[in-house]
Structures are given as structure tokens and as C-alpha cells.
Computed example of a mutant assay.
Amino acid sequence: MDLEDTLLMMPGPVPVAPRVLRAMSKPMINHRSAEFAGIYTDCREILADVFQTKNDIFLLSGSGTAGMEAAVGSVAGNGDKVIAIENGKFGQRFKDLAALYAEVVPLEFEWGLSVDLEKVKEKLEEGAKAITLVHNETSAGIMNPAAEIGKLAKKHDALFIMDGITSLGGDVVKVDEWGVDIAIVGSQKCIAAPPGMAAVSVSEKAFEAMNGMKKRLYYNDLKAYKKSGDKPKPETPYTPAIPLFYALQEALHIVKEEGMEARIRRHRALSEAVRTAAGAMNIEMFPQLNEYSQYSNTVTAMKSPAGINGEDIKNDMKKRGVIIAGGQEHLKSKIFRIGSMGNTTPRDVLSTIQQLEIVLKKRGYIDSVGAGTEAATCIIDRL
């Protein structure tokens, strides 16, 4: 099947608008020029609204993982303790990254299980320079309680480092109100730009914590990004991926045109439509929620129906022209995931549900098609 005819419904990368693709074909420019400074400034100004912050924002030529490493590596060194909350693949990644630079205090929960705030409080009372959290854990389809953890971090004078890679641009994120010292977003998720860029917001408290660091990162040193970003013509410390800056700027213009309130409402409605359709087909959600957590509003993680391998569902969907995601590591075959982030439309979601119903009918799990699509339509019609 031609890639142009394939519907990409995974938790990133996401489909990119034609105008964003066209933007990448612009001629190269001097990355130390006024033209580049204008692009950089424009992106930062729109991102300030996405992040809901007055903190500095920097753009890195690298994926969201580069932003994660920049965050922990810039503030934590030998002897520093970093509490790393893990309830999914990307919490595990944050833990592993922090371990390269500091003493990690792991706070591990079963993947898909809600974070226990009492245990977070206990770890913070023991003292730590920073605490890391994945706000929207796409590997398990769960939204973690960032606001509550931000309050605890502030109370115990710990830096709060948050991976907002798959929530920023698609759901409510209030960096300043929640007390997030460093927040990260990836370009290929809710912002709907091509992969390869990360944006990082950094508070004054985080910059103060960088003072006196004996060893510093080189390429992803956030102090270097601040020095370059504070110039009269803002720039990056090293040669940026100029075509990706073009694309990011255009994608952010789409975000601005839609407006964050409308964009969040759309993301929430489409994810609710997927969950409601799943319920109509007797498919169980994977995450186990408590009063402080909620289902992700950018990706839906579902348990594989009894007797059906999640990888088979993923492969069947691919044959029908829809790309969804399976489980990662020990969750492989046990769950499957449908993304609804970026510029996903109601038609995209309905097409996905229709194909999923056909797959499940052919697998003998449901007797007839239509219930899931009808249930999703009832939610989408509210938009």
C-alpha cells in the first residue's frame, strides 16, 4: 500500500500538514542571520502560549529524548539525588538518563498503574535535588498528576522536571502554575511537525541550580542555549536543523490559528470517542486510575481481547491501511494503542474504528460491526 494512502494513528510521529512539508523546501539561510532569529523568536513566542509559561524556551535539534537528557544533564551531577517516577516506558527512560549524571532514587510503579502521591511525598522528604515525571505516559495511556507533584516538589525545594512531550500542544499544561522548572515537548507529537526537534522551557530556579556544576553537557547544555538565545539576534549555540525550524514554525502557526482551547477540546473529544468505541466493543482500557490520574487524551491504550495477540491486531490494521501501535517491552502482545494527537480529524478516528471493528469481527471477537463506530460518532458530534 502506498504510504500516502496510509492512515497514521500511532502516538507519534503523526501526519504532517502539506503546508508544513512545503515549508521544509525553502532555501537554506544563514543560521546566524536576522532571518533565522525571526523564525526562532516566532516559534518561542507561540510556544510560550502552548507551555503557559513566562520562562525561557529553547529549541534543540534533536528528538524529545534529547530534551530529556538536556534537562537532567544540565542540573544534576555526581552526588546529586534525582527521584525518577516510573509507571511506563518513558518514565523508565527518564530514570536511565538521570542515572548517567546523578544518583537516581527510583520510584517505580507497575506500568499503567497510577502514581501514589504518598510515596512521592516520602521520597521527597528524604531529600533530592530534582524529581522527574512523564506527564502523559503514552506507553500505558495514562495521564499522571503533574500539578500535585509540582506542589510537593516546591514544598520540598526540589526541581520539578517534566516530560510533556505528548501532552503539550494537545492537552492542558500549565508550566508556571504547576511549578515546572524544566518542561520538554517533542515536535512530532501534538504539535504535528516532523520528528527531530525538542522545545525546552527553563525556570530561573533551574538556571540557578546549574551554577557550580563541575561537569557540563556539551551539545545539549541549556546554559549554552540561554547564552545564545539571549543575544539581540537570538540563535542556537550550534548549527540547527534549518528545514525542521521551517516546519516547526509552520506547524506552530497551525496551532495558533486553531487556538489552544479549541485544540485541547478536539484532542479530548477524539480520545473520548476512541475510549467510548472500545467500550461498545467490550474492549477494556489498560491503565488503572486513581483519584489523581486520568486516561491520556492523546493516545488510548487498550487490553488485547481474550485470545487475541495485540501484535496481530496491529498487523491486521496495517494491512487495512491504518498504522496503530502495540505494547512496548513486557506489554508487547498484551495491549494495543491508538493515537489521536496532532491534526487528527474526526474522520480519521471514525475510519480507524471502522477498520478495527472489521479486524475484530474477522478474529471472531465481535459478531457484527457498527456499535463502535456509532458510539464514537455520538461523542464526535459534540464537536
Rank of each mutant, 00 (worst) to 15 (best):
P234W: 01
A206V: 14
E137N: 00
C43E: 08
I308M: 04
E208H: 12
V105H: 07
V134S: 05
K154S: 10
S33M: 05
K332R: 15
A76N: 09
A76G: 13
H253G: 08
V115R: 12
P27D: 15
V359M: 00
G364C: 09
E177H: 11
D316K: 13
T276M: 07
I161R: 04
A376K: 02
A306T: 09
K129V: 06
P15S: 09
F90K: 12
M210A: 05
K121V: 02
E272T: 07
V359A: 01
E177N: 08
D163W: 14
G327D: 02
V322A: 03
P11D: 02
R275K: 05
V202I: 13
G310Y: 10
V185C: 08
C190I: 06
G73S: 02
A209R: 06
K151C: 05
K319R: 14
N343P: 00
M28F: 09
E110K: 08
V299Q: 00
M317N: 01
I242S: 13
T300E: 07
H156L: 06
D163I: 01
L217S: 00
A130G: 06
D80M: 06
C43F: 10
V322F: 01
K129P: 09
E86N: 15
D42C: 12
I142H: 07
Q52Y: 13
G307C: 08
A66Y: 03
R93Q: 15
M68E: 06
W111Q: 05
S114Q: 12
I161V: 12
E45P: 02
E177P: 06
D348N: 13
D80L: 09
K189C: 07
A269P: 04
A192T: 07
A199E: 14
S201C: 10
N30G: 03
V104D: 10
D163A: 12
L21H: 09
R347P: 00
S340D: 11
T138L: 09
F36T: 03
T41F: 06
I184E: 09
D157E: 14
D181A: 10
F109Q: 09
E311I: 13
V359Q: 01
K89A: 15
N87E: 04
E69D: 13
G62W: 08
L124E: 01
I254Q: 08
G38L: 12
E118W: 14
R93V: 14
F90Q: 11
I83R: 08
C378L: 13
F51P: 03
F94S: 12
M9G: 04
Q328M: 13
S296E: 13
Y295K: 08
P11F: 01
E125I: 03
Y40Q: 11
L248V: 03
P27I: 07
P11M: 02
E311A: 11
A192Q: 04
S333N: 08
V274W: 00
V175P: 04
A130W: 01
G279L: 07
R320S: 03
P346E: 11
E126S: 10
A224L: 03
T276F: 04
A206Q: 08
I85Y: 02
E125C: 04
R268E: 15
T41V: 07
L168I: 15
Q355N: 11
V134C: 12
A153E: 02
A146H: 03
V50G: 05
G91E: 09
Q188E: 10
T236A: 05
A153R: 13
E148D: 12
